[in-house]
């Protein structure tokens, strides 16, 4: 299968006042294939979310390069970013925080469409279509984030991410703050979407059981480095690194 994201020797240092710089991501290389669901697992601070933000160009890498569809996004000019965001989108961890509290959900979902020249009628139609696709009634578009549940908000966030029909979706702990039944619904939704839309997903998570169910390949991160990788079954049945063993032991 074709590699659509290639990450080589990616390193990100964060400046720390007075102390040595901390490496959030340390010399990481991996790739994502077309149509694949790749899990990034690891404890808090292991660099999962930093990788997500690097991949979407929200922060700049200290070293290394990221190629998405054969374009080096580390050297991308800021005004070209909108082209990148037509290919890669992200769903955030905290659903309540991922929508502007002063704007309706419909506004948030339609924003990327408006920025791409849709008029208000076309935007409204597309928003209704996206909401339906994510299993939400069209009235949700008129609600504010605090008026809907966490699960509904996360569905709306997925609808927003899919508005520009990206090929790659990054789910940054998209299910972590939801309760288990809602988690299951969101996973089912993502599963349905990846089949119908041929999405490649980078699924950031710390729940190996969920990963085993949902992902094709797993990368285990510890302290900014890749310590283990393979299929979920390989990781669970034959963990190599000490941290992976701990992680496998923690599956209930």
């Amino acid at each position: 299968m074709k590699e659509i994201i290639t990450v080589n020797n990616l390193t990100k240092y964060f400046k720390a006042h007075g102390k040595a710089d901390t490496a959030a991501v340390d010399n990481v290389s991996f790739s994502l294939h077309d149509g694949e669901t790749l899990a990034l697992v690891g404890e808090s601070g292991s660099g999962k979310s930093t990788i997500a933000r690097l991949l979407t160009g929200l922060i700049k890498a200290t070293d290394g390069n990221i190629r998405i569809y054969d374009k080096d996004i580390c050297k991308m000019k800021k005004n070209k970013a909108i082209e990148l965001y037509s290919q890669i989108q992200m769903v955030f961890q905290n659903p309540a925080e991922s929508f502007n509290p002063r704007k309706t959900l419909g506004y948030g979902i339609g924003e990327s469409l408006k920025n791409r020249g849709y008029n208000s009628g076309a935007t409204a139609n597309k928003v209704a279509e996206l909401l339906e696709m994510c299993g939400l009634p069209a009235e949700i578009a008129l609600k504010y984030p605090h008026q809907v549940s966490g699960g509904q908000c996360q569905r709306a966030a997925i609808a927003r991410a899919l508005a520009v029909e990206p090929r790659i979706l990054i789910c940054d702990e998209a299910t972590s703050s939801l309760d288990v039944t809602v988690q299951k619904q969101i996973i089912e939704l993502l599963d349905k979407l990846r089949k119908s839309k041929i999405l490649s997903i980078i699924f950031i998570c710390h729940n190996l059981a969920l990963v085993q169910q949902f992902c094709d390949r797993v990368i285990v991160l510890y302290d900014g480095k890749i310590v283990d990788q393979g299929t979920p079954d390989e990781i669970i049945n034959n963990p190599q690194a000490d941290y992976t063993k701990l992680l496998v032991d923690s599956i209930l």
Binding site: R53, T56, L58, A81, I82, Y85, Q89, M90, F92, Q93, N94, E97, S98, F99, N100, P101, K103, G108, E111, S112, N115, R116, A157, R160, A161, A163
Partner: peptide
């Protein structure tokens, strides 16, 4: 997160500030 989402939606800096 919603400001980061706005960046991903393709907002430019003035749009992010005003919206």
């Amino acid at each position: 997160s919603f400001v980061q989402a706005a960046v991903l939606a393709g907002d430019n800096p003035p749009q992010i500030i005003f919206r």
